[in-house]
Design a protein around this nucleic acid. Structure first.
Lengths: 104, 104
DNA sequence: TTTTCATATAGTTAAATTGCTATATAGCTA
DNA sequence: TAGCTATATAGCAATTTAACTATATGAAAA
């Protein structure tokens, strides 16, 4: 289990304030975002537009941050009617926490 | 507790394979390193020379990695007879684990 | 006091990261 | 089918990171 490359990738994804903010906001979609029409805040997640706004960066920059988090397996994208919704992958995040506490 | 800058600094320090290796090796100084003359492996920590060797980088590069870990509060340097020994700061690492599990 | 040796700093380079604007793609909707 | 509109990609600039070699510093030993 030494030098797990998966954990290093996740840590790199987390080592950024904008991406930490996204994970924080996605903890409480209903509390942090207004109701959505085309996707359920809980089931599907939060529209990328709103995450972009909260991050305070341009749309392509936000897209890349969300891609980093997705490829690290920390969030799950759901496409619906031309939108992309993101939610936390709680199973993966829980597994990471366990690994983190064991390895570090 | 939102967006803790201390945790971001620690995560940046951890998001590197060489630095993760150092923390891993320092978990078991006696198992991973030969006996030392001028510093106690447990009390003082491991000589920076041996950590440099394990990292497989040049001496100045290793010095910087160790500085990053030190400034993130994850390891503790002890100077003795011209050497610097490093050991894990278990209290700080434990606090970080707690914060990590609560925040992420 | 002088030498020696471990460690730190300076300075350079290459690669990765983060941001932007402009543009392409893709898929609803009319 | 045609046009919108959300998202993705391309391409560029600035910054940070990680590596190196060369050199400075500082403390112990001779």
């Amino acid at each position: 289990m030494k030098n797990d490359p998966h954990m290093e990738k996740a840590l790199k994804a987390l080592a950024n304030d904008k991406r930490l903010l996204v994970l924080e906001l996605l903890k409480d979609p209903v509390g942090n975002f207004p109701p959505q029409v085309d996707g359920d805040l809980i089931e599907d997640g939060v529209c990328s537009n709103w995450l972009t706004e909260k991050m305070g960066v341009a749309q392509p920059t936000a897209t890349r941050h969300l891609k980093v988090l997705t490829e690290a397996g920390l969030i799950i994208p759901t496409r619906k009617k031309g939108w992309v919704f993101y939610r936390r992958d709680e199973a993966a995040i829980g597994a990471l926490k366990k690994l983190f506490c064991e390895e570090v």
